[in-house]
Design a binder for these strands. Structure first.
Lengths: 212, 212
DNA sequence: CGACGCGGATAGTTCTACTCTCCGTTCATG
DNA sequence: CATGAACGGAGAGTAGAACTATCCGCGTCG
């Protein structure tokens, strides 16, 4: 197919497709002549993946490019792919170094030790956790910190099951893409389900028989 | 204090503070003369909250304004505040209506029924969940869907504990702000901890005795 | 054959979140 | 009391991100 059909089938404008081609999110089509190219089903799949990462996952175009480069890299292992996807999802602000962040680092280090987690110093999640806890410290409220172990418990179960779900498959057949999709869209799904669970719990407190 | 000190103590530029004042994120200072205003500790607290919502929570300025208007509203109840905060966090794309989204709606409805959740039709989390599942459907991979109940289980525990933590306090004394901070920063913290748990689980698979 | 669509390149647009400049006033310092 | 820095307020300007529009010369198809 040519670009017009790719556009029609994906719902993405031709102009945007050309932009993604320029930015390297989408591999170029197979040239049949110097100014005619041909796209296949794989391009359509990829284009849908791009839109999923941007729209649902909230990645930037640059972040999506990094992630997709990892997906295309034949010799990247799943552990490394996981790190790249996490880096793209956690849009980092460079953290300030004050005593709140020092305390937050200690809280995270204690948590890691308490749970026996194997997490490197520069894991994106770890840096993000320090950042959030330092911010909470600066805000002065202790409300969320009391739930830290609740969160950690829940995420440990989730992380174990996720990793198991990836490993319990025949090895390395689109599995990097599965990891990436799992991290990016899984995160969005978890946030959505948390919202539902919170509303549900809150509705029950308001009154068990109430309509709205 | 005047604006220069507010800037120095918060680390936010004077120009940005003026911008937040214009946008209604920060209430105006108390005017001591037509062109001199005085800010207090409350303004400093509020400014830090604004930066937390924007930087860590990833809210837009418009989203933060909506959330802060709820925080300032004396007669809003906690259940409604929860909804407003969720709306701001889930930056919505307007969903397309195709058969993938119809299937996704059914999956979500089944989940809600299976778990006995009380969730309204237009809960932000619910709409976001439909969106994610429809996107996964379009991508054709079933990988994440198999974890749906794992995620739901984890988030049910989290949501119950979070709501309990808010209710088990003396009523309505900055509690709307606590709810908002809990939802926005709690979400960031959960995402961060998931990243850590995933890396940890993945590292264990790679090899129990391995470095780096 | 001729109009429409193509790929490729470059320039322009829109939106967001600031940031800069200007104005007339006021405060702090000597 | 002079004067210069800082103030509040308003408007215009800017940077980056993600498109979007235009143009060009070539291909394809009716």
């Amino acid at each position: 197919m040519r670009v017009a059909e790719l556009s029609r089938r994906s719902g993405v404008s031709v102009a945007s497709i050309k932009y993604y081609l320029r930015e390297g999110l989408l591999p170029p089509g197979e040239l049949t002549s110097p100014n005619q190219a041909h796209y296949d089903e794989e391009h359509l799949r990829r284009l849908r993946l791009v839109r999923a990462l941007l729209d649902v996952g909230g990645l930037t175009v640059a972040g999506a490019r990094d992630v997709l480069a990892t997906v295309d890299d034949e010799q990247v292992d799943l552990h490394h792919a996981l790190g790249t996807a996490q880096d793209a999802v956690m849009a980092r602000v460079q953290p300030v170094e004050d005593d709140a962040s020092v305390r937050a680092e200690k809280v995270v280090a204690d948590l890691v030790a308490r749970r026996g987690w194997r997490v490197t110093e520069n894991n994106a999640g770890r840096r993000a956790a320090v950042d959030v806890l330092a911010t909470l410290d600066r805000l002065g409220g202790d409300q969320v910190v009391g739930l830290l172990d609740v969160y950690a418990e829940a995420m440990e179960a989730v992380g174990d099951r996720e990793v198991a779900a990836v490993v319990d498959r025949d090895e390395r057949e689109g599995s990097v893409e599965r990891v990436v999709v799992g991290i990016v869209l899984g995160g969005a799904l978890i946030a959505a389900l948390r919202g539902m669970a919170e509303e549900s719990a809150s509705a029950r407190r308001v009154g068990p028989g109430e309509q709205r």
